[in-house]
Write a protein that binds this DNA or RNA. Structure first.
Length: 424
RNA sequence: GCCUCAGUAGCUCAGUUGGUUAGAGCGGCGGACUGUUAAUCCGUAGGUCAAAGGUUCAAGUCCUUUCUGAGGCGCCA
């Protein structure tokens, strides 16, 4: 008995009987107990008490053993499984897009270089530049920032596809919702337009959240309890209006609000915080990108539910998004983009109908200085049997963040990678 | 990358306008008790106050730099 300390691994054999204790129905009346692994409590970093998430993050190799993280990772599993099930039920094919990519023209952010060249004295060409022809792949390569372009290639053959894999961004991002290595789901659908795209995203989000509510009830209850405890120490006005499961039911039971960027600007321009100068960035006119504070206002104050914003100004969006027909009531050119904004998380989905018209796409690439010669393989989809299609990217960890009610994205992935940290 | 806040025992924290030997709870160890659920009671050990430098008769407390962590912003999913 002396060896059974907190954290020890034991095996017990005995009779399962009705329990007299509170909060449990059965208990094991042990006949014999084996200690498999001792655990010295003086050295063991975990203790049977509340410990901060920041501290547990520093011992991420042991934090699986806490109730909170065990619950988080079971929910994470359920969500991943539900995503595959959702797409499979709808006839989508799971495509494995490459993790090492030769493309660096996607413009989705800074990339991590993949190389086997030596750092001291790499081979150089006649101009004195590093000669990547000598590198492992015979060219410069990076870790992928998105599987979208490859998914488009597959969609134009298999019609309905999705990717679900690791994604890497070398941005120096220090926030509660960014990681350098994260998992992204990217469906891509042929013959779909922006409306279809929005519907697919909303259906998917509601499906997987319902799945979690149904299959992770105990874990969500534990996480909800944790949140309620945590909020007791916060001032009244910072507490959330809904408990976790109530919030999830609300999202699955209500349609997302859909509005255009232009409509959103009108709402924001006439909003109280804008008139009273409460926004750090005042909304002056049409064309500027929305700041976090603006998105939060729309989602958390104005509509109080998930919001899908569409038809952003072309100037602030990616080259591959489909150009809209000009409209008299819209001040400038727009594209068929959509961002889904969730309370507390911000952007959880970013997508668009794709520009399927070869000439328009090439023209746009030229405007944005995307080297055409490196993108021939992508342009081939538009040269040979192009068709309307649409897709989006869902940040998996942001979804897990929302469903578990955790507040830092570093706590919903087992071993988070972020600037200055790649431990374990 | 920018801004703000924080770093005191294994963990969670208190430490007043700078002023004698730096405190508590939990955890550990020793004992008592026990159908317990974060058990309880008694006793006990445990600290280079993140690091370096400075101001001062005197620094956990003030200043500078560095490191680490958190939050906000930007980049985005």
């Amino acid at each position: 008995m002396d060896r059974i300390k907190f954290g020890a691994a034991i095996g017990a054999r005995g009779e399962l009987i009705a329990s007299q204790g509170k909060g449990q129905t059965v208990e094991l009346k042990a006949q014999d107990i084996v200690v498999y692994g001792d655990c010295n409590p003086e050295e063991y970093p975990l203790q049977p008490k509340k410990q901060t998430l920041e501290y547990l993050r520093e011992i991420a190799h042991l934090r699986f053993r806490t109730n909170t993280f065990a619950a988080v990772f079971r929910v994470r599993h359920a969500l991943a499984f539900a995503i595959h099930q959702f797409f499979n039920d709808r006839g989508f094919f799971y495509i494995h897009s490459p993790i090492i990519t030769g493309s660096d023209a996607e413009g989705a952010g800074e990339m991590f270089r993949v190389t086997t060249l030596p750092f001291d004295g790499p081979p150089r060409n006649e101009a004195g530049e590093i000669d990547f022809k000598e590198d492992f792949f015979g060219r410069s390569t990076n870790l992928t920032v998105s599987g979208q372009l490859e998914a488009e290639l597959a969609a134009l053959a298999l019609s309905e596809v999705y990717t679900f894999g690791p994604t890497f961004r070398a941005e120096n991002s220090n926030t509660t919702r960014h990681l350098a290595e994260f998992w992204m789901i990217e469906p891509e659908v042929a013959f779909a337009d922006l409306q279809d795209n929005m519907q697919l995203a909303e259906d998917m989000l509601q499906y997987v959240i319902k799945y979690a509510l149904k299959h992770c009830a105990e874990d969500l209850a534990l996480l909800e309890e944790r949140l309620i405890e945590e909020e007791k120490s916060k001032p009244q006005d910072q507490r959330s209006e809904m408990a976790l499961t109530e919030k999830l039911h609300f999202v699955t039971g209500n349609e997302f609000v859909r509005l255009t960027y232009t409509e959103a600007i009108d709402i924001l321009r006439n909003s109280n915080p804008n008139k009273k100068g409460k926004f750090q960035y005042k909304i002056e006119g049409w064309g500027a990108d929305l700041q976090s504070e603006h998105e939060r206002y729309l989602v958390e104050k104005h509509f109080k539910k998930p919001v899908i914003l569409t038809n952003y100004p072309a100037a602030i969006k990616a080259f591959y998004m489909r150009q809209d027909e000009p409209r008299e009531d819209v001040p400038g050119p727009t594209v068929s983009a959509m961002d889904i904004l969730f309370p507390g998380i911000g952007e959880i989905v970013g997508g668009s109908q794709r520009e399927e018209r070869y000439d328009r796409l090439v023209q746009r690439m030229a405007e944005m200085h995307i080297p055409e010669e490196e993108m021939q393989w992508f342009l081939d989809t538009r040269r040979f049997g192009s068709c309307p299609h649409a897709g989006f990217g869902l940040g998996f960890e942001r979804l897990v963040l929302f469903v578990t009610g955790m507040s830092n994205i570093r706590d919903v992935i087992p071993f988070p990678r972020f600037p200055g940290s790649a431990e374990f």
